[in-house]
Computed example of a mutant assay.
Amino acid sequence: MKVDWDIFCKVVDNYGDIGVTWRLARQLVAEHHCAIRLWVDDLRAFERLCPELDINAARQWQHGVEVCHWPTDWQPADAADVVIAAFACQLPSAYMEAMAAREKAPLWMNLDYLSAEDWIIGCHGLPSVKYKQVQKYFFFPGFQVGTGGLLRERGLLERREQFQHSTEAQHEFLQGLGVDRTDGARLISLFAYENVGLADWLDVMAGDAHATHLLVPEGRILGDVERWLGVDGLSVGALQVRGALTVQVLPFVRQDQYDLLLWSCDFNAVRGEDSFVRAQWAARPMLWHIYQQEEDVHLDKLEAFLTLYTAGLSPAAKAALVGLWRAWNTGAGMAEAWVATQEHWPELQKHAQAWCLEQASQADLASALVQFYLNWI
């Protein structure tokens, strides 16, 4: 008998919440044969990741997942065997009553934000609050043993390796996006929030002796790119050349295509949570733009990850990479940090591959959630 799961997602900002829950829901269906209802409050934002979605439908099936609009005027619904409140979203009060009314209480988990901070190991899997007789549990994705791991579909690394070893497959994919890669040019993807440090980085790439082809999917960073280029209204397909730098605007693509983009590039600048994890599976040097929080608490999370990620690097390579990430996330000058990073490029490439394999040696997030349920029952 299939186990029924309800996953609740409030789209707060920038597609990160729905990106994670949509990927998780599909994997639970495809690999673990779970019956999934994904409750989403903003179907219009969801449509960017799933273009075939009917934004006016209260219920619909997409990729084996029952997608349900989470309305403000909640209608009665039976509670599932497993209930996931993604990123601490508050469940409808009527649904919580339905959980409490079940003969056997469901497993209720708060799927929290990804973090490399040490304290999450001690909190992962612990009981949280109760609603009547229904107990909620903390579930933390993470990078270390003792956490919930990272989202990773079965066979992902094998597919990536096959793609990265096929010049023909990469060429065909890039051509489909209108990208004609210049021989010898370093290919970089840029997906980020607004960043005052971008101009300095673009300046140094434009003046470099090494050619760079910068691919910029539609998103919030595009305004900063336009200001640097001195143009308005860059649209998909726009191509601008400044010195050694070619800048090209790409469409906002669905998740499987974004994976291929990351796999095609030599370096990936990413943002948020979902693209951050996917860049690690790409096994290429990367740069993370972490979501800014009040009182700069996000910088503590950044440092926690850097401590883990840079272990094993030579002191010089570590200093260069840490300097680059700190500059990018504090709006500082990027030029010196980028030049220093390039001096250690071969080491950073090997390190990205080793980190990817290290993370893949742990259980993936979907499997860890299923195992948690099996242990619970």
Results as ranks from 00 to 15, higher is better:
Ala105Gly: 07
Asp203Asn: 15
Asn14Ile: 02
Thr21Leu: 01
Val83Asp: 01
Leu214Thr: 07
Val236Ile: 13
Ala58Thr: 14
Met286Val: 03
Val40Pro: 02
Ala35Gln: 14
Val145Ala: 12
Lys350Trp: 07
Val65Cys: 04
Gly142Tyr: 02
His69Glu: 10
His210Leu: 14
Val129Lys: 14
Tyr193Trp: 07
Glu158Val: 09
Met205Gly: 00
Cys50Pro: 01
Val253Ile: 11
Ser166Lys: 10
Asp112Cys: 05
Tyr309Ala: 11
Tyr113Cys: 06
Met1Thr: 12
Asp112Glu: 15
Leu198Glu: 09
Arg37Ser: 15
Ala35Cys: 12
Tyr309Val: 11
Gln280Ile: 13
Pro76Asn: 13
Gly142Val: 04
Asp296Tyr: 12
Tyr258Arg: 03
Ala209Ser: 13
Leu150Val: 04
Gln62Leu: 14
Leu53Lys: 07
Glu358Met: 08
Arg181Tyr: 00
Glu358Pro: 00
Arg220Ser: 02
Val277Lys: 01
Asp54Met: 04
Ala100Pro: 03
Trp355Leu: 13
Ala100His: 04
Ala320Phe: 02
Asp42Cys: 08
Gly197Leu: 03
His351Ala: 09
Ala354Lys: 07
Ala85Asp: 08
Tyr291Ser: 08
Thr147Arg: 07
Ala360Tyr: 07
Val322Trp: 05
Val247Ile: 14
Lys350Leu: 14
Ala335His: 11
Gly149Cys: 03
Ala105Ser: 13
Asp17Ile: 07
Ala100Arg: 09
Lys132Pro: 00
Glu294Pro: 01
Val129Ser: 08
Gly64Lys: 10
Leu177Gln: 11
Ala57Tyr: 03
Leu151Gly: 03
Arg242Val: 06
Glu117Val: 10
Gly243Phe: 02
Pro92Trp: 10
Thr341Val: 11
Cys356Asp: 08
Arg23Phe: 05
Ser275Ile: 03
Ala199Met: 01
Asp256Ser: 13
Glu294Leu: 03
